[in-house]
Structures are given as structure tokens and as C-alpha cells.
Design a protein around this nucleic acid. Structure first.
Lengths: 212, 212
DNA sequence: GAGTGTGAAGCAGTTCACAGCG
DNA sequence: CGCTGTGAACTGCTTCACACTC
């Protein structure tokens, strides 16, 4: 279909992200062409679903053959906005934040964490890898100076909303939230929650059902 | 409706988990009764959605009044299986695994990490908090001895599938996966993925759309 | 023949609107 | 009157089935 005007459903975008990962594996293995059914079994979905998902991008498959791994990889990178570097700030240098800074797959995908902010005066001025931790007073200044595109929130729940309010006011349009709170923010700011607690509790529900 | 026979949609279960969090906040504030609209605005959803979600549990609301905070809290804990302790094993004592072991909200909710497994011989025998790290050779033995209910996977992608195959063979019915791979496992084992990369890439998609 | 692309049908979750109860 | 509980309408994602192309 049309690559630019129509929005791609959220569920599809998440699967596209998976397909890209699989395609990179195939590329590494020297596979040059791949059928929808191969992507489907890797992703735990159906071939029809894969084709429908990919049809959102345009018509890149060859009938009787499948998709060119190299071509589709490129298209997916483009659509997902992974053909450039995104500058990321981390709020909160606690255990989770620290783990994220050093999470290699982020950097490999073009997410560069350039800025770290923490409230704790003991941490301010120390280094996390190569990055100097800055105090929360410097938040707006840092976002602007470092030309940040995206903010990861990994501060304690009670202070999270206050911090993102400032982040939004500074014009940031994308927030990834690890704090166990539901953040309130304007329509035009994209928000994703990584809620370990919600996932764990939905497993608990599954176990409890199983149990009785 | 019926509490036991009918399955609750996944999307609803995740929201129930949020509602429970809000109810605990209300309880702490001394609020005794709460209307659907109050839960809705906290959760970023609609009052109708909240009522529909809660109707899956039975009829606990009072017309003209709302829901009893104490009663609903108890019901939600019961339904989500949070009225007991779940014994959890962590595979992988890397940065993410380490952060999880020390994540206080898990323990507060009744998820007790009692067991840690790691491949690295240097780590085996050392302690993570109070827990002695055991080698992967001891996996089956540890799961059985510690009567584990649920496993968190935080090992590098390439070894994840092999480890979960053994976990599943040992009879575990719930897996929380932090590794950036799509795990293949039997129908009757519950699986949730916490994919930081997928979330980040879907934000990247949102930014890229915004951009042009 | 193998495998894509897609309208049409099916299904699931969400929203609406209102009857009914405290 | 306020607020719940719920059938009915709606919306949007998924699955199906098949024409079409390499």
C-alpha cells in the first residue's frame, strides 16, 4: 500500500521489529531470499499475518520466491526509523538505568544514550561508562545541548510524573517509561511502558488459573 | 460474571494489574470508596472500560456509590493470584538479571526470587544479595529443590532457547523473557516477553513518522 | 508449482447508551 | 440523582481463500 500516508497498526509495528531481527539473522547466515512462512514460524505467527503486515510497506515480495532479505531489511530499517541515530537521555541512574546504559543492542540499533540525569547528589559528577551524570537541575539544559530525541524514564515512581512534565515542556516527543506508574502526557508525545510488574502479574494470573 | 470458568482477556488482565496499583494508592490515602471514572482517569482509559473490565470478576460495585476500595483490592489480589507467594528463579546474573533480583516491587507483590543460575564459572559460588549463584549444570536440581513456580530469563539471546527447553522439561509453566529472542514453547506454558528493543523501535517508528 | 497480495469474512476488544438499583 | 452492569453497535485486527505472478 502507501508507505507514508497510512498509519501502521501498533501490533504490526511490533511484529515488524521482530521480522527485522529475523532478517538480520538470515543475512548473517547468508540466506538471500525468505518466504512469509519462514518469518511466521520464527515469530510464532502465521504466514498470512506476515504478508498482511508486510503489505503495509508496499509490494516487496516476489511471487513464487519470497522476499529479498537484503531489500526487506533495508525497507524495514527505513520504515522503523532505524536508518539514523537517535539521541537518548536516561533519567535515573539506579540499577535499571545502569543496566540500560550498558545494554549493547540499543547502541547497535542506533540508539545512543548521551545523557544521564540523577537526583542523588552523591552520583552527580561521577561517571557511568563515559557519561558524566548530571543533576536534575540541569535537565532542560542537557536535553537541549545534547539535542535529545527520546527520553528513558527509570526514576522511582513518585518523582516520575514531575520529571516527564519537564521533559515534555522541553519539547521531547517520545518517552520510554520503566517506572511503575501510568504517566499522563499530551496526545502528540509517544509513550511506551515497560512494566515488569504488569507482565509478572499477568503470569501470576495464568498460574493461578492453572492451579485450581 | 463467572469468576472461574470464563477466561479474562489478556488486555483486561493487564489493566486489572494497574487498577490494583491505583487501589493500593487510594487505600494508603484513606479513601474507602472509588468510582469507575476515578480509576479510568488514572489509568488513561474510560469509565465504561473500567466497568467492563471489573464486570469480569463479578458484581462488586454499589450503584450510586462506586466500589469499596478494600473489597475490590482483595478481589483483584485473588483473581491475579497475588494472595500467595510465587517462587521465582532467575537465569542469568548479568546487568539486567542483577537489577531484577534487587527490584523491590517484585518482592512486595509476593514474587520471591530464591534461585539464580549463571553460566559464567567466575560467578558461580559468589553471592547476589543473599542468594548463592549456581551453575547451569544445577538447573534442574535447583528448580526442583527450590520448588520454583516461575522462571525469569535474562541470559544472552543465543543460549536462551536451550535454557528454556530444559526449564519446560522440568515442568515449569510460566516464563518471563527478557532476552531479545522469540522463544518457542508448548501451548500450556505461559510466556510474556519484556522486549526493550521492540518498545524502543516502536517509538522510533513514531518519531520517524513525526519527522517527515 | 510456489508463494505473494488482498478483498471478504470472522472474531475480539472497545465504546455506547440505557435500564436498574442504592 | 449518581453510578453500576450489560446488551448492542462499532471498530480494528486476524484469518481465510483465491486470483495472480514469477
Amino acid at each position: 500500500m502507501n508507505e507514508f500516508t497510512s498509519r501502521i497498526p501498533d501490533a504490526t509495528v511490533r511484529r515488524l521489529s521482530l521480522y527485522l531481527r529475523f532478517l538480520e539473522d538470515f543475512e548473517r547466515l547468508g540466506v538471500t531470499s525468505v518466504a512469509s512462512v519462514a518469518l511466521a514460524e520464527r515469530g510464532g505467527t502465521t504466514a498470512a499475518q506476515v504478508r498482511k503486515d508486510l503489505s503495509h510497506l508496499g509490494s516487496y515480495g516476489k511471487r513464487g520466491l519470497g522476499y529479498s532479505v537484503a531489500e526487506l531489511t533495508g525497507v524495514l530499517r527505513g520504515v522503523l526509523g532505524l536508518d539514523c541515530t537517535w539521541r537518548v537521555a536516561l533519567l535515573g541512574a539506579g540499577r535499571i538505568g545502569t543496566a540500560l546504559v550498558e545494554y549493547e543492542p540499543f547502541r547497535r540499533r542506533g540508539f545512543h544514550i548521551t545523557t544521564v540525569i540523577d537526583n542523588d547528589p552523591c552520583k552527580v559528577g561521577t561517571r557511568l561508562g563515559k557519561i558524566r551524570i548530571r543533576g536534575q537541575g540541569e535537565l532542560e539544559e542537557a536535553l537541549c545541548e545534547d539535542r535529545i530525541d527520546l527520553v528513558i524514564v527509570a526514576v522511582p515512581a513518585p518523582v516520575a510524573q514531575g520529571m516527564v512534565d519537564r521533559v515534555v515542556a522541553a519539547g521531547i516527543k517520545a518517552v520510554l517509561n520503566y517506572a511503575p506508574v501510568q504517566l499522563r502526557l499530551p496526545e502528540d508525545v509517544a509513550l511506551r511502558n515497560v512494566s515488569m510488574l504488569v507482565e509478572l502479574e499477568s503470569l501470576s494470573y495464568a498460574l493461578a488459573r492453572h492451579r485450581q
